[in-house]
Each structure stands twice: as structure tokens, then as C-alpha cells.
Simulated scan of single mutants.
Amino acid sequence: MHSSPKKSSAARDRLLRVASGLFYREGIHTIGLDRVLAEAGVTRATMYRHFAGKEGLVLAYLGEEDAALRALFAEGASSAAEAADLLDVLIGGIADDISQHHTRGCPFINAAAEYPNATSPVRKLVASHRDWFRDTLEQVLVAAGAEDPAAGAASLVLLRDAALVGGYLDGVEQTKTAFERTARKVLA
């Protein structure tokens, strides 16, 4: 599902960093490859040496987002003494993500909106990420002894989706507080 890993280089890293910023801030389809290349200071040949076209660059961008969120979850899990503590850490981590990292909505929801074909590689990557996110939340809720872990996980996914969109539209501080309050009520 993810594009095959390519050998890292300064040019590749710069290209991915620039493309990721542009795609997240301005949208994937509104950004032309020429702009990405110009702002990254790389040639088209360099881009094709590392990525299978623009879609390959989009997949790498979303793959980096997925890896960053997985790392945050792993970090939270290692810092929590008990499963109940992990729930608080995860709610706080999601709230921080809403207010600090993803202030223009969810990169996966944004990408899905631009790729309506559910069988496209981009949508498959989005679906894989969402499955991991939901499954991970459910595992945490099982460990915490939640009454209905699947329903709790589904509720948290829905709340996070809404909070990421709401943070962009209504302001992150108001949304962060509302997310934390609502998530705790849902899980109580």
C-alpha cells in the first residue's frame, strides 16, 4: 500500500518536506509539481529518482503523517503506567495534535476529499491509517476495561475527525477544550 521505500538523500528529504507543507496548507491538487520542484530546489529527474510521480510524493507525504502519529501513540504508551493512564495520555495527545500540529484539518480527511475513488492508492492508504487508528484505540480501551471498546473507539475516531475539522474552522483552543471534555464524557 505504501510506496516502496527509497534511499534517503538530502534532496529527497527536502522535496518531501516542501511537498508535505504545500499539500497540507494548500491542498494536493492545487499544487503543481513544478512549484514543488522549484521550492524544493530539485530537478524533475531527482524527483523521479525518489518518487513515482506526484502520486508517489502524495503517498510518501501521507506515509510520513501516518508514521508520526504511530510514533506519538508509541511514545504515549511507553509513558503511561496503566491502561487508564494511557487513555488520558491519548486524549491529551490528540488534543495537542489538534492545537499544535494539524491546525488545518486532518491530512487524511483532506486527502480523501481530493481522491474520491475509494480504490485509489491514496484512499487505500487513508483507509489503512484509519483502520490502524481505530484498532489501536480499541486495544487501549480493552486494556482499560471499557464496557464496549469498539463503540468507544468509534466514538473517539468520530470526535477526533470532528475536532480536526472544527479546529480549522472554529479555532483550535475552543475545539481542543471541547474535544477533551467530550472525549472524557464518552469514555466515562
Rank of each mutant, 00 (worst) to 15 (best):
K124W: 00
D135E: 13
L137R: 02
G105T: 10
V122S: 01
D148R: 15
C106G: 04
A144Y: 05
A153G: 06
D148E: 13
H102V: 03
P121N: 08
T136E: 11
R134L: 15
T136N: 08
P121R: 02
P116H: 02
H102D: 02
P149E: 06
F108H: 10
A127E: 03
E138S: 07
V140R: 03
R130D: 11
A113E: 13
A151F: 11
N117C: 05
V140H: 04
S128C: 05
T136P: 03
S128W: 05
P121T: 06
H129G: 01
N117Y: 07
D148I: 08
V142G: 02
E114R: 08
A150D: 07
H101D: 11
E147K: 15
A146I: 07
P107E: 08
Y115N: 09
V140D: 01
V122Q: 03
P107M: 10
V142I: 15
A112V: 04
A150E: 14
P121K: 06
T119E: 13
G105P: 10
R130S: 11
T136F: 13
L125N: 03
V142S: 03
Q100R: 15
A143H: 03
V122K: 02
A127N: 08
V142P: 01
L125D: 03
R104Y: 13
P149R: 02
K124Q: 15
V122C: 04
H129M: 08
H102I: 04
V122F: 09
Q100T: 14
A153W: 10
R123G: 00
H101E: 12
A127I: 01
D148V: 13
P121G: 04
I109F: 04
D131Q: 14
R134K: 14
L125M: 13
P116G: 01
G152Q: 07
S120W: 00
D148W: 07
N110M: 09
G152T: 08
T119F: 03
Q100H: 12
L137M: 14
H101G: 05
R130G: 08
C106V: 02
G145N: 10
A112C: 12
E147A: 15
G152A: 07
G152M: 06
K124I: 07
N117V: 06
N117H: 11
P121V: 04
P107I: 11
L141R: 00
F133I: 02
A111K: 02
A144W: 06
R134M: 12
V122E: 02
N110S: 12
A113P: 00
I109W: 03
V122A: 06
H102R: 15
V126C: 10
S120L: 03
D135M: 07
S128N: 10
E147S: 14
A150N: 06
D135S: 12
A118T: 05
F108L: 11
P149Y: 04
F108C: 06
G145V: 04
K124H: 05
V142Y: 05
P116C: 02
R130M: 14
D131L: 14
L125A: 12
A146F: 09
